[in-house]
Write a protein that binds this DNA or RNA. Structure first.
Length: 803
RNA sequence: GCCGGGGUGGCGGAAUGGCAGACGCUACGGACUUAAAAUCCGUUGGGCUAAGCGCCCGUGAGGGUUCGAGUCCCUCCCCCGGCACCA
């Protein structure tokens, strides 16, 4: 008997699939469609790592199953190929990032092919391909046209030694990732996208989609909706007012002072009135010098100074209250000013305690002289004039109505979500297709001139001033204004890596279209994506950005649905054998090529699916890989004991139906590990029975095929079952037949198992009872006791309660 | 601090309120072999045991509901993830 030669067999089938275009997506749009999507990788120089194939295999399993269920399946792959590593490599070696990228793509592709994924490679996309980023630029221009792109002074991370702007992930412990020098912030005028305009829809529409709960929760946290009111406080003897945002207008009577952010404009507007201007200015300066990081630091002692000469008037009781400046109030959230309610807010309490400010209790229940009382959901209002005696919820309603009526406040919803900084001072990204003209301002590059390509440069390093290397290519920068024809300069910032990945799933449906990002009939048929799996690390940025772009494209009529993804799931990380994150420096990296060479792609795929709970992190285990290899070797051996038969045998019938049900269900619900366990159990049962017939073998091979496609095709062919396995239909089960006719159930006495009996599933209780009472163990357990009650759950348990 | 998800053998992990530990790994014992590897068979939560059946304990801790709890409820501890001077 020939031993299973995985290298030969896997190569053979990969070649057949490629030549036959087996997994090419059909253009028959009368069929039901299924669009399965996995996140396309950044093709790094490291090559594929065993973490990559986990989600790919998972959706490959689903895609293969769907094809056998008669769906037209779109399961594509591509490359998110702009990005820092290729650029940094270019800086060091002077090799053009495009060359490095191509090399890396080829390697990734080869590795993926060796794993037998059923991607339709004819639809491969690459974000760095001008035919692709032409449309990335086009979308940006549409955003610009609709006023959703604007320029704003924003800080960047700046390493003064490398003279380079750094992405947040390149800042490690407040130092530069490459040289360790402390990172400074520099303010740069940058392109921003108004994602905040979509905040409400991004949060509300989560209700329409089937995302795993933790993804929805993270998105909601990130967007951070909070409902409250804007309330206006008059400044005494001045025209100016201070508006604050509060979620607790009910506590207005407890507002004993106000705090404004050091950047608050009123400090400029009323500077003549400020008696301690020097002190205030010094504080502003100090706050400005603190890095973002320092300012965000937790639990630091509150600092601040009183703005002398200015008083505010609490609109509910006319009381004059002091105004303070403190950096715990952020200009970037709400209005940059707060009313301080030290009795019921931890931060305000700390501030008031430090500066000896009055603390008034307005919700009964705590002791505000000791700490802020914040458990106020159920409290009763006190010291609050016309709100006294009300519970918090009704007080909120009453005061909000009162404020509105008096014109002192309006209900308001605020979001933590900030606009998207869309500029990068780098070479290896999509050029932003805008031109600046002295006369006309920012002007879009005409659509017919897209794609706006990257010029060749000699040096990939950013300039000393932090401009992108493009700024030095004067004959690229200097151009004519598309509007007036006068001299103008191109924008030299490029787009962030998030740009290309914000719409790639649309391009797959019609990847070679020259006239549109994709044709309407293709978009209408394929969109939305039916199932998108990706890493949790992309939950807040990529997922949100791409939903934002899709909603925008929906608004301008490019796509027909407001949401791009019907379903979103997420996989856990694969750790090294030592339970630590896999990394070169830890020396625990497992290379998928080695696993494929030694054990085969099928074993690799199977192990990746069997390794544990799909949604959780899990350490790699070489022993576990061997276990899967052993299983496949035993499957291989089955071919020598297949007997004729076109229906399931008596011995295995129930087991076959049970397994079809279990495997079919588990493949759909991310429980690949238990699906495989069920197949292992079935194999054990087959070996116990001692033989398998053709009908059983066919079903077994089809069920196993999505996980182990090569060996199952080979066996299908060897056994002469006809056609190719991938052309077969997914097996069905009969619910009736999943239930074994006779079954051993446990018998309990007072809830403790005292034995088991074999009963027919449809035995009435009396028959079951006879069998139970005939059991000697049960007789012994019942001896001398009085039976109080008997519970019989057919197929489950027989419990006897005794005294 | 707020919001999620968890805690089950030596390990990865299974269990619609119904025989906890499926399945795999590891370890141990046996068969095959000159030997080893591979393969096959058996055992593998802990303890007690008259060795016969069997009994006791056991799903982070403590209470509760139930004929019956890993699963439901309450209190607490620990781990992982997200958000966070966000008013």
């Amino acid at each position: 008997m020939a031993r299973y030669n995985h290298q030969e067999v896997e190569k053979k089938w990969q070649k057949i699939w490629e030549e036959n275009e087996t997994f090419k997506t059909s253009s028959d749009y009368s069929k039901p469609k299924f669009y399965a999507l996995v996140e396309f990788p950044y093709p790094s120089g490291e090559g594929l790592h065993v973490g990559h194939p986990r989600p790919y295999t998972a959706l490959d399993v689903v895609a293969r199953k769907r094809r056998m269920e008669g769906y037209n399946v779109l399961f594509p792959m591509g490359w998110d190929a702009f990005g820092l590593p290729a650029e940094n490599y270019a800086i060091q070696t002077k090799i053009h990032p495009a060359i490095v990228t191509e090399r890396n793509v080829n390697r990734f592709k080869e590795q993926m092919k060796s794993l037998g994924f059923s991607f339709d490679w004819s639809r491969e996309v690459n974000t760095t391909d001008p035919n692709y980023f032409k449309w990335t630029q086009w979308i940006f221009l549409k955003l610009f046209e609709k006023g959703l792109a604007y320029k704003k002074e924003m800080p960047i991370n700046w390493c003064p030694r490398c003279k380079i702007g750094l992405a947040n992930e390149e800042v490690v412990d407040n130092g530069c990732e490459r040289c360790g020098h402390p990172v400074e912030t520099r303010v740069k005028n940058q392109w921003m996208l108004k994602i905040t305009e979509y905040a409400e829809r991004l949060i509300d529409d989560l209700e329409q989609v089937d995302y795993i709960e933790r993804v929805k929760i993270q998105q909601r946290n990130w967007i951070g909706r909070s409902e409250g009111a804007d309330v206006t406080f008059q400044i005494k003897d001045a025209d100016q007012t201070l508006t604050v945002f509060t979620t607790r207008p009910d506590t207005l009577f407890g507002a004993t002072y106000m705090v404004i952010s050091p950047e608050h404009p009123v400090l400029e507007e009323l500077q003549e009135r400020i008696e301690n201007l020097e002190e205030v200015r010094a504080y502003q300066e100090e706050a400005r010098k603190k890095s973002e990081f320092e300012r965000a630091e937790l639990n630091q002692e509150k600092t601040g100074v009183r703005v002398e000469g200015l008083m505010a008037i609490n609109p509910v009781n006319g009381q004059e209250i002091t105004i303070w400046v403190s950096d715990y109030v952020l200009m970037s959230y709400g209005t940059g000013a707060i009313m301080a309610v030290p009795g019921h807010d931890q931060r305000d309490w700390e501030f008031a305690a430090k500066f000896g400010l009055p603390i008034v209790e307005v919700v009964a229940g705590g002791d505000v002289t000791k700490e802020a009382y914040t458990q106020t959901e159920t409290g009763t209002m006190v010291n609050s004039g016309f709100l006294n005696g009300l519970d918090v919820a009704s007080a909120k309603q009453k005061i909000t109505a009162w404020l509105e009526e008096k014109g002192l406040g309006v209900p308001k919803v605020n979001y933590k979500l900030r606009d998207w900084v869309f500029s990068r001072q780098r070479y290896w990204g999509e050029p932003i297709p805008l031109v600046h003209c002295e006369k006309c301002g920012w002007v879009a590059v005409p659509e017919e001139e897209l794609p706006l390509r990257l010029p060749d440069v000699e040096n990939y390093e950013p300039t000393d001033t932090g401009e992108s290397p493009l700024a030095k290519i004067r004959d690229w920068v200097e151009t004519a204004c598309p509007a007036c024809g006068g001299p103008a300069e191109r924008e030299t910032d490029t787009m962030p890596q998030w740009a290309g990945s914000s719409w790639y799933f649309l391009r797959y449906v019609d990847p070679h279209n020259d006239g549109a990002l994709a044709g309407k009939e293709h978009l209408d048929y394929w969109m939305p994506v039916d199932w998108y799996n990706g890493g949790m690390e992309h939950t807040t940025l990529h997922l949100l950005y791409s939903r934002f772009w899709h909603k925008f494209l929906y608004d301008i009529g490019v796509v027909a649905q407001p949401e791009p993804y019907l379903k979103r799931t997420s996989h856990g990380m694969i750790l090294g054998e030592n339970n630590e994150k896999m990394s070169k420096s830890r020396g625990n990296v497992v290379n998928p090529d080695d696993v494929v060479a030694e054990y085969g792609a099928d074993t690799m795929r199977m192990y990746e699916m069997f390794i544990g709970d799909f949604e959780k992190s899990v350490p790699w285990s070489t022993d576990g890989v061997r276990g899967c290899k052993r299983f496949l070797d035993r499957v291989w051996k089955l071919k020598d004991s297949v007997k004729p038969g076109d229906s399931y045998s008596k011995e295995l019938e129930a087991k076959m139906h049970q397994t079809i049900k279990k495997v079919s269900h588990d493949y759909e619900s991310l429980k690949f590990n238990t699906a495989i366990a069920a197949l292992m159990t079935l194999l054990n049962d087959i070996n116990e029975v001692g033989s398998i017939n053709q009908a059983e073998m066919k079903t077994f091979l089809i069920l196993l095929n999505p996980v182990a496609p090569h060996i199952t095709e080979e066996l299908w062919e060897i056994l002469g079952f006809g056609g190719m396995l991938n052309e077969q239909s997914w097996p069905t089960y009969d619910e009736e037949k999943t239930i074994a006719r006779t079954i051993a159930i446990g018998v309990q006495v007072n809830g403790k198992v005292r034995g088991d009996v074999t009963v027919n599933i449809d035995d009435p209780q009396e028959v079951a009872r006879e069998k139970v009472m005939a059991n000697s163990n049960i007789q012994r357990a019942l001896a001398g006791k009085t039976i109080v009650k008997e519970i019989y759950v057919p197929g489950r348990i027989y419990n006897i309660v005794v005294k």
